[in-house]
Amino acid sequence: MSENNAFWNYALQLYSTPETAELCLLLQNDYQLSVNYLLFALWLAHQGKELPASLDDQHVRQWRTRMLEPLRQLRYQLRHSKQSPQEYECYEQLKNAELAAERVESGLLYDLTEHCPDVVRDAGAAVEVMAIKQLGYLNLCSVAGVEPCLTGDLQTLLRQLNNKATGCGGN
């Protein structure tokens, strides 16, 4: 597994703006979408690769459900009760552990890149258009039916990221 990889660096750069982070968290919290999967789909689009709808790696899914999501749930539970210095310290440690688990997940996703075929795209096709096509990834998140507001939120995110991502897609 490659924890220090081009995808992780790309994701960190995209997620670094407050507007992008806020919108990613909205998609995660309101629609139970994986921010890592979303950013992976976008990174693949910038790499000229396609995220196959059939790409559902058991190892990534198990890592997410057994490690990452329980850490997030614990952190969320502690978030509102950070009254003592010890509780605050515990919250911060859980936040760091969650970030470390997300980094592991990004490495697992990056390792799947070889299974993602190259896409031949029109010279005039914007990366945003290609990235929207990538969002067949929603199937991986078990989202039943794409609601209009979800589509709108995703398109807003893609517009935000399209400008920012042009400078951070390298291998």
Rank of each mutant, 00 (worst) to 15 (best):
I132F: 10
Q134S: 07
D122K: 05
D118Q: 07
C149H: 06
A53K: 04
V120C: 08
L138R: 09
D111I: 00
L33Q: 02
E89L: 10
Q93D: 11
V129R: 05
L108Y: 15
Y37F: 13
H59N: 06
M130Q: 05
E22V: 00
G48K: 11
M130K: 14
C141G: 12
L25W: 06
A123D: 10
N139Q: 05
A6S: 06
Q28V: 15
K164M: 04
L51I: 10
S142H: 08
P117I: 13
M130H: 15
N162H: 15
V146D: 05
N9R: 15
V127K: 07
S106L: 08
E147V: 13
E102C: 02
L23F: 14
T17Y: 00
E22T: 03
A123S: 09
N96M: 07
G107Q: 00
W63Y: 12
G124H: 10
E87S: 05
V127C: 12
L25V: 13
D118W: 06
N96V: 05
T151P: 14
L71N: 11
Y76M: 09
T65N: 10
A165G: 04
E3F: 08
E98K: 08
N171G: 09
N9L: 13
L154C: 04
N139C: 13
R75M: 03
N29Y: 06
L154V: 12
H46S: 07
S84D: 01
L44G: 09
C116K: 11
D57C: 12
E50I: 09
V119E: 14
D118N: 13
Q86L: 08
N36H: 15
V60N: 03
A53Y: 03
L26I: 04
C116G: 13
D122C: 07
A125G: 12
H59P: 00
G124Y: 14
K95Y: 02
E22Y: 00
L158E: 01
R79H: 03
D122W: 10
R103P: 01
P148C: 09
M1H: 01
L14P: 00
G152S: 08
